[in-house]
Design a protein around this nucleic acid. Structure first.
Lengths: 203, 203
DNA sequence: ATATTTAATGACGCTATATTCATTTTATGG
DNA sequence: CCATAAAATGAATATAGCGTCATTAAATAT
């Protein structure tokens, strides 16, 4: 068990991270100063440097911790059912819910996975990609299982189906993130899933 | 017609833009200095400021010009056929080809549309999004036409289908962009399109 | 209550870099 | 061939912001 001292430290660390998260996700890595972060977290700059070697270190810790959280949360939701179709429904629903609940995290995560990320230079990129890829493989396993059980027709390689479903949900979420007043992420997961479930072409 | 002087100016402007494009797409906006751009373009810093008010101005001009080009090129390819299925095939194929041919542009474009973009603050973001949305509407029109002609079943709202197809192709292209040695963007557009064309569920 | 250790602070040094502008170079026209 | 205008140059300036560290405050031990 953690000592009072250690718990206190952890709490402080979290407060710094939260402040940094909100600022980074709002303005991007380079447009946030350590002084801003310190101000928002209500610490002095020097104190932050007691917890993180430097700005980049803080950013990396943030990204990795949050990416882990996203992956875990979604996979937990998926695991709640044994049926493949329901697993997919849970995935689509959980992804939407997480977005709603954690917009700053998601903004940051996308800027890392899709965007101009300073860490393309450093090594963080690879770790985040690995995480995402592990996630895609879990999704692919659901499609594979569905095919094996004759629940699904094999319309494409399971990994491709995973990429596709992940891509579709992401696209919908961007739409919503950009203009929440114009586009909503469907409440009913089947609105999205039917695009895969039902064939566009007759026969 | 443009005078010799004017044509020369335009050529210079293009060279500056190309240098900036390559640097920005490689290292991101904030990790590129005006001196680097000047060096790569083989001009003095001061000369660049004769063409662009400042760094941000150069970046904006670059993004908008290239986003326009992408949209135009893809829509031209789509327009080459009258048949809806072939239009979609052309779309998937053209998007792949452009990526291959213009990796720096695409990297830059994604960093703007999906990523940590400094211009979230400035107004550029909106213009790029508008452009992308116009594009989605054209894609939606194809689905709508296909449904009207009974070529397609209406598995979802046409705009949603457009979002989905755009999302899927983007997801495949990211995969390829991240690890070209492991994942290739399918040569045959039907590998992607079958995910929409054929239904996953029996019945 | 006092000494000692541990933590927090934030002003300051230093570097990096965007932009300017006095000077040099090149082009134009008489 | 010279005079004048237009363009290009890059050294110098101004500023922003990361990270340090001497100082102060708080916690803990004696």
């Amino acid at each position: 068990m953690l000592s009072r001292r250690e718990r206190e430290k952890e709490r402080q660390r979290q407060e710094m991270m939260t402040a940094a998260l909100n600022l980074f996700s709002e303005k991007g890595y380079h447009n946030v100063t350590m002084h801003e972060i310190a101000g928002k977290a209500e610490f002095a700059v020097g104190t932050i440097y007691k917890f993180f070697r430097n700005k980049e270190d803080l950013y990396k810790a943030l990204i990795l911790e949050k990416a882990q959280e996203l992956k875990t949360t979604i996979l937990e939701a998926v695991g709640e059912s044994a049926d493949e179709v329901d697993k997919l429904r849970n995935f689509v629903r959980a992804k939407g819910e997480i977005f709603r609940a954690q917009i700053p995290v998601v903004r940051l995560y996308f800027s890392e996975t899709h965007g101009e990320s300073f860490s393309m230079l450093a090594g963080l990129d690879a770790e985040v990609r690995t995480l995402h890829n592990e996630f895609l493989k879990e999704l692919a396993a659901i499609f594979a299982a569905g095919v094996a059980k004759k629940r699904f027709k094999k319309t494409a390689d399971p990994y491709y189906l995973a990429v596709a479903l992940d891509g579709i949900t992401t696209a919908f979420l961007f739409l919503w993130l950009e203009a929440p007043e114009r586009h909503s992420y469907p409440e009913n997961p089947d609105v999205i899933l039917n695009i895969l479930f039902k064939g566009l072409l007759d026969q």
